[in-house]
Design a protein around this nucleic acid. Structure first.
Length: 546
RNA sequence: GGCCCGUUGGUCAAGAGGUCAAGACGACGCCCUUUCACGGCGUAAUCAUGGGUUCGAUUCCCGUACGGGUCACCA
């Protein structure tokens, strides 16, 4: 077989050589130790937590080393592509503060190693495909889908241990003559380009940055390089792109482990250095007592959009994922409460190789801490951002009462043990609702612990003596005095010891006050709330019960 | 089924041939307290399993079980 003739027959339009392409994408000039990483999402319209998980790893590996992090759109499967999906990926990553140095953008490409959309790289792949053909490493295959299915069925019937295109099943396609191929092409028969595998039973070892040394069988499959539309498969595109774009690390899910041998063989055939592979484990969740992979259909929390809708703070997502990735993150956070998570020394080696379970409760706990560390102004700006997208009505309130909102967000923040009332922005809106008459839900009744007579007496005295400028101490002294006058124990402990001596305890009194003021049995400090509401509102809410 | 990856409390997990097997979330209890939070203290709870190697194995080796992945002109 004259491979040169075959190559010209298959790729008549390809005039460039692999050297030409290499010159267009020279090695990057980066300081020693700088890593180049990427994410390569498929534009299916669904961005999930796993995408973000891998993105964060890749981002840290690159930026922590002063390297480059880029976005490459892997759109080689036009059947699965969804309109606007590239936009969705870019927006989701931006929302979660994942920033690219180069790659696909909503307006085009940014960077010297593009195009960053694989379908636009067709000509590049063809140059390398032609080289493979010229060197006897690839050949056209004209088998139809039905014929392929027949082979598969035969293999299953023969109890062949592996199914696929290899060994004797590849022989016919491998050994077509140039004349035959030429005739078929002239007749317009569709073909795919297959890799001509070594097909031996050797094994190879490779060191994965997360999993350590791996020992696996070499590839034996004549897998497809170019589909009949001339677009490459993932395997071919991955090898060509990560070489040309000079990726130093490939961070991807463990589902790629089983095809790693194909990629390794391709890199070797081209004589290229392999990137450092980092195969992450799949996020799982508990379901009916057993672990399973997070699934798109069953688990709403898998979609990144879920976190946006719930208003889960992006810093919290980062901190949660960093905690899952490197378990020493929490220790580091405790030692560096004020540092940005970007300063955390992330390490691939410290990653767990077993699949982590997604734990919403842990996320919430982290979110409370993260928001708790922010000052009121920062919280307000996050809240407004979220509301402008997901809660317009509340945004209007915030904008109508900016000072009150800011004060409300600061309640309980001072002191050595600041409150942590906010978990996510959705919940924050609900939590703040009693600060505004527009959303305040007044109670219709008071608990029966205090008689109506005492209730009226209390509120009358309270309002009569109420002085808005009182400090917290003076204020509470008055509450105590009134309680005492009405026959309620001033100290809860006194009441506990001798309940028969009192009508009730100050706890009952303050609960009543709190309920009148907030509509809720549980709320932050009454005095502070009064001062957020202002004298007028406070008096109005309490007056109802006098 | 073949191949590959994995298995420490309910969850995330540290760990090393000899530890009372860290820590965090959650649960529970106590303390603080005008409610709820916050905070503090404490309790319960883990090395999948069977063999080997060894004076000693949760740690090393082999098998078993279980879970996950993959076997496409999908990524």
């Amino acid at each position: 077989m004259d491979y040169q003739k075959l190559a010209d027959l298959l790729f008549p339009d390809v005039t460039e050589t692999r050297e030409d392409i290499e010159r267009r994408f020279p090695p990057r000039s980066l300081p020693a130790g700088a890593n180049v990483t990427r994410i390569g999402p498929s534009p299916t319209g669904f961005v999930h937590l796993g995408n973000l998980y891998n993105a964060i790893i890749a981002e840290r590996v690159a930026h922590q080393s002063g390297g480059v992090f880029y976005l490459r759109i892997e759109d080689t499967d036009n059947k699965r592509e969804v309109e606007g999906a590239v936009e969705t990926v870019i927006n989701a990553m931006a929302y979660f503060d994942v920033h690219f140095d180069e790659g696909a953008t909503s307006t085009g490409d940014n960077g010297a190693y593009g195009p960053y959309r694989q379908r636009q790289r067709k000509e590049i792949y063809h140059v390398f495909a032609k080289w493979l053909v010229q060197n006897g490493k690839a050949y056209p295959c004209f088998l139809t889908e039905e014929e392929l299915t027949a082979i598969r069925e035969e293999q299953l019937a023969n109890k062949e241990i592996v199914t696929g295109f290899f060994g004797k099943y590849a022989e016919v396609s491998r050994n077509l003559t140039l004349e035959d191929i030429s005739a078929r092409i002239a007749a317009g028969q569709p073909w795919v380009l297959r890799f001509r595998a070594e097909m031996n039973d050797k094994r190879f070892t490779i060191t994965d940055a997360i999993r350590g040394k791996l020992d696996m069988p070499c590839n034996i499959m004549d897998f497809v390089l170019l589909k009949s539309d001339g677009i490459p498969t993932y395997h071919f595109a991955h090898v060509v792109d990560d070489h040309l774009m000079r990726s130093t690390h490939v961070v991807r899910g463990e589902e790629w482990l089983s095809t790693l041998s194909m990629h390794v063989e391709l890199f070797d055939v081209f004589g290229w250095d392999k990137p450092i592979y980092c195969h992450t484990s799949t996020l799982q969740k508990i379901d009916g007592g057993s672990k399973r992979k997070l699934s798109k259909r069953k688990d709403p929390e898998l979609a990144l959009a879920f976190y946006q809708q719930e208003g889960i703070c992006k810093e919290a997502i980062w901190e949660f994922l960093l905690t899952v990735l490197n378990s020493n993150f929490e220790e580091w956070r405790a030692a560096n409460p004020d540092a940005s998570y970007m300063e955390f020394p992330f390490s691939l080696e410290k990653m767990s190789t077993s699949g982590a379970l997604f734990d919403m409760e842990k996320l919430n706990n982290i979110a409370k801490d993260v928001i708790g560390r922010m000052d009121a102004e920062t919280v307000l700006s996050h809240l407004k951002n979220w509301c402008s997208e997901y809660n317009r009505e509340f945004l209007a309130l915030i904008e109508q009462y900016p000072d009150r909102t800011l004060k409300a967000l600061g309640v309980g923040k001072q002191g050595a043990k600041p409150r942590k009332d906010f978990v996510n922005w959705k919940q924050t809106c609900e939590f703040l609702s009693f600060y505004f008459d527009e959303t305040f839900k007044a109670q219709d009744d008071m608990p029966a612990e205090i008689s109506e007579e005492d209730r009226k007496a209390f509120f009358a005295k309270y309002l009569a003596s109420y002085a808005h400028e009182d400090d917290a101490e003076a204020w509470f002294a008055k509450v105590r005095q009134i309680s005492d006058e009405l026959g309620y124990a001033v100290k809860p402990k006194d009441y506990k010891k001798n309940p028969e001596n009192y009508k009730g305890s100050i706890v009952h009194v303050t609960n009543m006050l709190r309920t009148a003021l907030t509509g809720m049995a549980n709320a932050p400090d009454i005095w502070e709330i009064s001062h957020v509401l202002g004298e007028e509102l406070t008096r109005a809410r309490l007056g109802k019960w006098a």
